[in-house]
Design a protein around this nucleic acid. Structure first.
Lengths: 183, 183
DNA sequence: GTCTATAAAAAGATAGAC
DNA sequence: GTCTATCTTTTTATAGAC
């Protein structure tokens, strides 16, 4: 069993319960490992576990959402629709939280904070790039990328707080058209 | 010194760091009390502290935001503009988080979860009521109330993650017009 | 109403055997 | 690579004096 084997379990734990909410006992139970065994895979302890998990989530996002979004072929509306489809999968149609959002409310620690910020920046820039290619002004494209992330994160937060995934689904449905308004 | 004296300090702690992130040692330091003294004011311990803090925040919101929003006099645009002005004050123009948002990512506990959900529902319903009075269809008004909360919470999350309050300020600026679209 | 002192439990982490 | 056992620190909470 390698380190990568257990990252999906860690991902699920951390995105649901956050850094403070997850204990090594939780992780041991979820992975089926003893607490001591976790230190074999992650010598840096809980800090290394959460950073590795953010890397795992970032890789998934990069491969399945951002790289397709940066492709040159295809209409921008279709690229954005593809993005929404993948996000719907990632967040299980609004029933699962985003680890970046969860970690935003975690403890104030520079490495964690930077990793989250970096993930959001790359996401925003990938959307902005797609809009710029479609002829949108650079400043407006960046604003719309930020608007998209606000809409996604806000809808996931409300969906979680209200025990109802529909707000997320509604937001995702109108997102492509909203981003392309005026093109 | 009464219990109410210390609620502002607790409010600031909990909205910044969440339930798990705040220890009794933190609270003791912030209030200037000894740990044991906290149990005089809050015999139920940390649980009672956070619930009392949510009540304190809910009272502020009710008095300063929701009641003015329910008033009959005045144009709906102006009522919503007033709401945004108060929210800008509450969140220090995007530099401070919303305790409801922070608590949404806290531990899964029924009483906390219910208190947060209830606060969001009342907020959404107050906005929807103002729109209904202005002639908006009931179902659409509720959607727009949800949209408003998603925009507020999403922008506060992004503002916090990116160390930049401007996304929140931008969202608040266009919110009244957005909610009144088509009236 | 606040304090010192202390308990009891849970947390993160390590040593060393297999 | 995984385990049992143990250690250290932190956390929540209580007892009882002033």
């Amino acid at each position: 069993m390698s380190r990568e084997t257990h990252l999906p379990a860690l991902f699920q734990l951390f995105r649901e319960q956050g850094y403070d909410g997850v204990s090594l006992a939780n992780i041991a139970k979820a992975t089926g490992l003893g607490k001591a065994s976790l230190y074999h895979h992650f010598p840096g302890g809980k800090d290394e576990m959460v950073l590795a998990t953010l890397g795992y989530a970032g890789d998934w996002l990069e491969q399945n959402v951002l790289q397709p979004l940066r492709q040159d072929d295809g209409e921008v509306q279709e690229l954005l629709q593809g993005m929404c489809d993948r996000l719907s999968q990632l967040y299980d149609e609004g029933r699962q939280p985003c680890i970046l959002g969860t970690m935003t409310f975690g403890p104030v620690r520079d490495d964690l904070h930077e990793a989250v910020k970096q993930g959001l920046v790359e996401f925003i820039e990938a959307i902005a790039l797609a809009l710029v290619k479609a002829g949108v002004d650079e400043a407006l494209a960046k604003e719309r990328g930020e608007d998209a992330l606000m809409a996604i994160q806000g809808s996931l937060l409300i969906a979680r707080a209200m025990d109802d995934p529909k707000p997320f689904q509604r937001v995702l449905k109108r997102l492509p058209g909203q981003l392309c308004e005026g093109i």
